[in-house]
Simulated scan of single mutants.
Amino acid sequence: MNAYSRPSVYRHFHRIAWLAAGLALCVIVFGAFVRLSNAGLSCPDWPTCYGRAAWPSAAQDVNDHAASAIRPFETHKAWREQVHRHLAATLGMLVLLLSLLAARKRRWGIAQILAAAALVGCGIPLYMHGEHMAASLLAIAGEAILLAAAMRWSNSDLARVAALTLAVIIFQALLGMWTVTWLLKPIVVMGHLLGGLTTFALLVWMAWRATDMPITLADARALRRWLIGGLCLLALQIALGGWVSANYAALSCGLDFPKCVGQWWPPTNFSEGFVLWRGVGVDYEGGVLDGASRIAIQMAHRMVAVVLAVYLLALAWRLLRTPSMRGWAVALALLVCGQVTLGILNVKLSLPLPIAVAHNAGAALLLFTLITLVARLRRPD
């Protein structure tokens, strides 16, 4: 099949894909709200919250639950974490539906998708009863089935990307579980953020391909190279942003910008700041790094932000020279300027929650813009 031809999918597939993409954006933004309001460990058990499918309404409701010995109950935080979990679970069901629809014409396609989902489902009660290793192994087995199927299937009916998206969702569930089990370990928190945005990107790409609204340009190939370069830089910057957040390094430079603690280049410790694995059993809430290590993380984030902003503005200028792409050029330039402004305001205003959440949403919108153009651009036949 031509890489740009319309895939053969169920007639309402694109509507479900857009619904899932919209919900994924909500999960990302609400997840940022949960993380930045320090509510990530407010439900110390998983997937329940102090043994409840929803969340307790008062502290006395959890006195008899084992999780109450792990962390004191905070009503104003617990609902945030559990609502986020419910939104993520709903998204998972939508992605499962998309996978079933995409694989329905494949030999044993539906059986493979359901088998993977069943393995993951069987792992949940095991995890709740303390069998963490067994639960993880079942989820990994489900992942293996999906990845093997994706490697065999083509994308003529979007079966490959749908299976990959479901695999990412399952891995997201594992990361969510490990976030609680390993007490906000930075590599897990960062991976959870990247996984959410990867899910969003895959769903947006799938939705556009199913919608089939191409943008035909003679120099589409060159523009796609520009866009893929931008996506790589954006992914790096998002990862660094996740590392900043996971290590509580957002205000490591104080309220200084563009300087950091009054200096253009303060003492830093990159080797310590970018240690990815520090063992288990440590509570990472609030961060464990010293000032120089956190400053190193913050400075890396700022430096890559400059490179990314220059690159994307150059890309916007490149798009502006093509009459049919001027709207996208303006949108991209505005998003870049908005993200830079929000990043500066986060520092100068001491990380106010609405601005910090908006900064996360801005990253998702930048990702949406680049993925949209990659999915829609094609050369004339």
Score class of each variant (00 low, 15 high):
Pro7Ile: 05
Met151Thr: 13
Val34Leu: 05
Arg379His: 11
Tyr50Gly: 07
His12Gln: 15
Arg326Ala: 06
Leu197Asn: 06
Gly142Trp: 00
Leu313His: 09
Tyr248Val: 00
Phe30Met: 09
Ser136Trp: 04
Thr198Tyr: 03
Gln263Arg: 15
Gly338Arg: 14
Ala361Leu: 15
Arg71Met: 14
Ala210Gly: 13
Ala111Cys: 12
Gly273Ser: 11
Val27Tyr: 02
Leu240Ala: 05
Ala239Met: 13
Gln60Ser: 13
Arg6Phe: 08
Tyr311Asn: 06
His76Ile: 13
Asn346Pro: 07
Phe33Cys: 03
Pro323Thr: 13
Leu345Thr: 03
Gly142Ala: 08
Thr322Asn: 06
Ala239Arg: 00
Trp265Glu: 03
Leu174Cys: 05
Leu193Phe: 08
Arg209Pro: 08
Gln237Asp: 06
Arg376Cys: 10
Leu202Arg: 03
Thr211Pro: 12
Ile215Glu: 10
Ala222Gly: 04
Cys43Asp: 06
Leu138Thr: 05
Gly262Tyr: 10
His12Cys: 10
Val310Asn: 06
Glu81Ala: 07
His84Thr: 03
Thr211Met: 12
Val282Met: 10
Thr181Ala: 12
Arg221Glu: 15
Gly262Met: 07
Leu231Thr: 01
Val188Ala: 00
Leu231Asp: 03
Trp243Pro: 00
Ala117Tyr: 02
Pro56Met: 11
Val304Asp: 04
Gly273Ile: 03
Thr211Asp: 08
Trp79Leu: 11
Thr90Ser: 14
Val347Cys: 04
Asp283Trp: 02
Arg35Gln: 05
Gln237Lys: 11
Met1Val: 15
Asp157Met: 07
Phe30Glu: 09
Asp381Asn: 14
Val336Arg: 04
Phe33Arg: 02
Leu353Asn: 12
Met151Lys: 14
Ile169Tyr: 00
Ala149Met: 15
Ala116Gly: 15
Ala135Phe: 06
Arg379Cys: 08
Gln298Asn: 13
Ala331Cys: 09
Tyr311Cys: 07
Asp381Tyr: 09
Arg152Glu: 14
Met325Glu: 01
Gly362Thr: 04
Gln263Lys: 15
Trp208Arg: 12
Cys337Val: 09
Ile145Cys: 02
His12Gly: 13
Ser350Glu: 11
Pro7Met: 13
Ala39Asp: 05
Arg321Gln: 12
Ala135Met: 06
Tyr10Leu: 11
Leu319Pro: 00
Ala135Arg: 00
Pro352Leu: 09
Leu197Ile: 13
Thr369Cys: 14
Val9Asp: 00
Ala150Tyr: 05
Ala134Lys: 07
Ala103Trp: 02
Leu194Lys: 01
Ala222Cys: 08
His192Ser: 04
Gly40Cys: 01
Leu234Thr: 04
Met325Lys: 09
Leu366Ala: 03
Arg224Gly: 05
Arg104Ile: 07
Pro352Thr: 14
Leu367His: 02
Glu143Asn: 10
Leu332Tyr: 08
Ala32Cys: 10
Ile110Arg: 14
Thr179Ile: 02
Gly291Ser: 13
Met299Trp: 08
Leu351Arg: 05
Ala17Leu: 12
Ile170Gln: 00
Cys122Asn: 05
Trp243Asp: 00
Leu255Ser: 14
Ser271Ala: 14
Glu74Arg: 10
Leu114Glu: 01
Leu166Asp: 04
Ala54Gly: 10
Thr322Leu: 13
Gly195Val: 06
Ala17Lys: 07
Leu334Pro: 01
Arg152Trp: 12
Pro266Ile: 02
